[in-house]
Amino acid sequence: MANKRYGMVIDLRKCAGCHACTVACKAENKVPDGIKRTKIIEEETGEFPNVAITFRKHQCMHCQDAPCVKVCPTKASYHTEFGTCEVDPKLCIGCKYCVHACPYRARTINPENGLPEKCTLCVDKLAKGELPACATTCIGNAITVGDLNDPNSEVSRAVAKGARPLNPEWNTKPSIFYIWNRR
Protein backbone atom coordinates (compact mmCIF):
# COMPACT_ATOMS: atom_id res chain seq x y z
CA MET A 1 0.00 0.00 0.00
CA ALA A 2 1.29 3.40 -0.94
CA ASN A 3 2.26 5.77 1.83
CA LYS A 4 -0.18 8.44 2.84
CA ARG A 5 0.47 11.90 1.47
CA TYR A 6 -1.56 14.36 3.44
CA GLY A 7 -2.90 17.38 1.64
CA MET A 8 -5.50 20.08 2.06
CA VAL A 9 -8.17 21.51 -0.20
CA ILE A 10 -9.47 24.97 0.65
CA ASP A 11 -12.76 25.93 -0.96
CA LEU A 12 -12.47 29.69 -1.39
CA ARG A 13 -16.17 29.88 -2.33
CA LYS A 14 -16.96 28.98 1.27
CA CYS A 15 -14.39 31.23 2.99
CA ALA A 16 -15.94 34.29 4.64
CA GLY A 17 -12.60 35.65 5.81
CA CYS A 18 -13.52 35.27 9.48
CA HIS A 19 -9.95 34.48 10.62
CA ALA A 20 -11.14 31.64 12.89
CA CYS A 21 -8.51 29.36 11.32
CA THR A 22 -5.77 31.86 12.19
CA VAL A 23 -6.92 32.06 15.79
CA ALA A 24 -7.47 28.31 16.21
CA CYS A 25 -3.98 27.64 14.81
CA LYS A 26 -2.37 30.12 17.18
CA ALA A 27 -4.15 28.58 20.17
CA GLU A 28 -3.44 25.00 19.12
CA ASN A 29 0.24 25.53 18.32
CA LYS A 30 0.99 28.23 20.92
CA VAL A 31 2.34 30.58 18.25
CA PRO A 32 3.84 33.71 19.87
CA ASP A 33 2.51 37.24 19.44
CA GLY A 34 3.27 38.98 16.18
CA ILE A 35 3.64 35.91 13.98
CA LYS A 36 1.22 33.42 12.49
CA ARG A 37 1.33 30.02 10.85
CA THR A 38 -1.68 30.76 8.72
CA LYS A 39 -3.62 33.86 7.87
CA ILE A 40 -6.28 35.20 5.56
CA ILE A 41 -5.07 37.33 2.67
CA GLU A 42 -7.54 39.50 0.81
CA GLU A 43 -6.88 39.46 -2.90
CA GLU A 44 -8.57 41.63 -5.48
CA THR A 45 -9.39 40.02 -8.80
CA GLY A 46 -10.88 41.18 -12.06
CA GLU A 47 -11.18 44.62 -13.60
CA PHE A 48 -13.73 47.31 -12.91
CA PRO A 49 -16.68 46.87 -12.94
CA ASN A 50 -16.32 43.08 -12.69
CA VAL A 51 -14.23 42.97 -9.56
CA ALA A 52 -14.21 40.69 -6.55
CA ILE A 53 -12.34 40.28 -3.32
CA THR A 54 -11.21 36.77 -2.52
CA PHE A 55 -10.28 35.70 0.99
CA ARG A 56 -7.46 33.18 0.71
CA LYS A 57 -6.07 31.15 3.59
CA HIS A 58 -2.29 31.36 3.25
CA GLN A 59 0.12 28.93 4.90
CA CYS A 60 2.95 26.49 4.23
CA MET A 61 2.09 24.69 0.98
CA HIS A 62 3.89 21.46 2.00
CA CYS A 63 5.62 21.28 -1.37
CA GLN A 64 6.86 17.90 -2.51
CA ASP A 65 9.74 19.64 -4.30
CA ALA A 66 10.31 22.09 -1.48
CA PRO A 67 12.87 24.91 -1.82
CA CYS A 68 13.16 25.10 1.99
CA VAL A 69 14.18 21.43 2.19
CA LYS A 70 16.59 21.83 -0.70
CA VAL A 71 18.52 24.76 0.84
CA CYS A 72 18.64 23.59 4.46
CA PRO A 73 22.33 22.92 5.21
CA THR A 74 21.70 20.43 8.02
CA LYS A 75 18.58 18.67 6.63
CA ALA A 76 16.67 20.07 9.62
CA SER A 77 13.90 20.93 7.14
CA TYR A 78 12.59 17.59 5.94
CA HIS A 79 9.58 15.70 4.64
CA THR A 80 7.71 13.54 7.13
CA GLU A 81 6.54 10.07 6.12
CA PHE A 82 3.21 11.73 5.30
CA GLY A 83 4.80 14.09 2.76
CA THR A 84 4.43 17.19 4.93
CA CYS A 85 7.32 19.59 5.56
CA GLU A 86 8.66 19.94 9.06
CA VAL A 87 11.67 21.29 11.00
CA ASP A 88 13.78 19.17 13.34
CA PRO A 89 14.72 21.43 16.30
CA LYS A 90 17.75 19.26 17.10
CA LEU A 91 19.35 19.97 13.71
CA CYS A 92 18.17 23.56 13.08
CA ILE A 93 20.90 26.17 13.60
CA GLY A 94 18.65 29.14 12.82
CA CYS A 95 20.44 30.26 9.66
CA LYS A 96 17.11 31.44 8.19
CA TYR A 97 18.07 30.23 4.70
CA CYS A 98 14.76 28.31 4.45
CA VAL A 99 12.79 31.44 5.34
CA HIS A 100 14.47 33.27 2.45
CA ALA A 101 14.03 30.31 0.09
CA CYS A 102 10.27 29.81 0.47
CA PRO A 103 8.68 31.35 -2.65
CA TYR A 104 5.31 31.39 -0.86
CA ARG A 105 6.91 33.44 1.95
CA ALA A 106 5.17 31.08 4.36
CA ARG A 107 7.89 30.80 6.99
CA THR A 108 8.98 33.22 9.66
CA ILE A 109 11.26 33.01 12.71
CA ASN A 110 9.79 32.30 16.14
CA PRO A 111 11.39 34.90 18.43
CA GLU A 112 11.07 32.61 21.47
CA ASN A 113 12.98 29.56 20.24
CA GLY A 114 14.65 30.81 17.05
CA LEU A 115 13.01 28.09 14.97
CA PRO A 116 11.34 28.65 11.61
CA GLU A 117 7.66 28.89 12.40
CA LYS A 118 5.22 27.33 9.95
CA CYS A 119 2.19 25.10 9.48
CA THR A 120 2.77 21.39 10.17
CA LEU A 121 -0.67 20.42 8.83
CA CYS A 122 -1.18 19.27 12.45
CA VAL A 123 0.31 15.99 11.29
CA ASP A 124 0.35 14.63 14.85
CA LYS A 125 -3.42 15.08 15.06
CA LEU A 126 -3.90 13.56 11.60
CA ALA A 127 -1.95 10.47 12.68
CA LYS A 128 -4.42 10.08 15.57
CA GLY A 129 -7.36 10.35 13.18
CA GLU A 130 -8.19 13.91 14.18
CA LEU A 131 -8.37 17.00 11.96
CA PRO A 132 -6.07 20.06 12.01
CA ALA A 133 -7.21 22.89 14.29
CA CYS A 134 -8.03 25.18 11.35
CA ALA A 135 -10.24 22.54 9.69
CA THR A 136 -12.26 21.80 12.83
CA THR A 137 -12.97 25.46 13.48
CA CYS A 138 -13.79 26.65 9.95
CA ILE A 139 -17.32 28.10 10.01
CA GLY A 140 -17.94 27.45 6.32
CA ASN A 141 -16.42 23.98 6.21
CA ALA A 142 -14.07 25.32 3.58
CA ILE A 143 -11.08 23.21 4.69
CA THR A 144 -10.80 19.54 3.77
CA VAL A 145 -7.82 17.40 4.71
CA GLY A 146 -7.00 13.91 3.53
CA ASP A 147 -4.75 11.49 1.70
CA LEU A 148 -3.76 12.70 -1.77
CA ASN A 149 -2.44 9.21 -2.58
CA ASP A 150 -5.91 7.72 -2.12
CA PRO A 151 -7.86 8.47 -5.33
CA ASN A 152 -11.16 8.08 -3.46
CA SER A 153 -10.40 10.57 -0.70
CA GLU A 154 -12.35 13.82 -0.63
CA VAL A 155 -9.18 15.84 -1.33
CA SER A 156 -8.20 13.68 -4.33
CA ARG A 157 -11.68 13.98 -5.79
CA ALA A 158 -11.56 17.78 -5.37
CA VAL A 159 -8.18 17.89 -7.12
CA ALA A 160 -9.55 15.68 -9.91
CA LYS A 161 -12.42 18.16 -10.29
CA GLY A 162 -10.01 21.06 -10.74
CA ALA A 163 -8.71 22.30 -7.39
CA ARG A 164 -5.36 23.95 -8.12
CA PRO A 165 -2.39 24.95 -5.99
CA LEU A 166 -1.22 28.57 -5.77
CA ASN A 167 1.38 29.32 -8.46
CA PRO A 168 1.70 25.79 -9.88
CA GLU A 169 4.12 27.27 -12.45
CA TRP A 170 6.79 27.37 -9.73
CA ASN A 171 6.91 23.57 -9.96
CA THR A 172 7.28 23.02 -6.23
CA LYS A 173 4.41 20.48 -6.22
CA PRO A 174 2.38 21.90 -3.32
CA SER A 175 0.05 19.72 -1.22
CA ILE A 176 -2.35 22.59 -0.57
CA PHE A 177 -5.00 23.08 -3.25
CA TYR A 178 -7.59 25.77 -3.69
CA ILE A 179 -11.04 25.71 -5.25
CA TRP A 180 -10.99 29.21 -6.69
CA ASN A 181 -14.09 31.33 -6.79
CA ARG A 182 -13.13 33.38 -9.81
CA ARG A 183 -15.90 33.55 -12.34
Binding site: P73, T74, K90, C92, I93, L115
Partner: peptide
Protein backbone atom coordinates in the same frame (compact mmCIF):
# COMPACT_ATOMS: atom_id res chain seq x y z
CA UNK B 1 23.52 35.91 13.23
CA UNK B 2 22.08 32.45 13.93
CA UNK B 3 18.79 32.35 15.80
CA UNK B 4 19.96 29.06 17.40
CA UNK B 5 23.67 29.80 17.85
CA UNK B 6 24.32 26.99 20.35
CA UNK B 7 23.35 24.50 17.64
CA UNK B 8 25.91 25.85 15.16
CA UNK B 9 28.07 22.71 15.28
CA UNK B 10 25.29 20.73 13.58
CA UNK B 11 26.18 22.48 10.34
CA UNK B 12 29.60 20.79 10.46
CA UNK B 13 28.16 17.35 11.28
CA UNK B 14 25.36 17.27 8.72
CA UNK B 15 25.68 18.17 5.05
CA UNK B 16 23.07 18.65 2.37
CA UNK B 17 24.68 18.72 -1.06
CA UNK B 18 21.72 20.47 -2.68
CA UNK B 19 22.38 23.42 -0.33
CA UNK B 20 24.91 26.05 -1.38
CA UNK B 21 25.36 26.77 2.33
Amino acid sequence: DLSRPLNFYQVMLHYNWTSVM
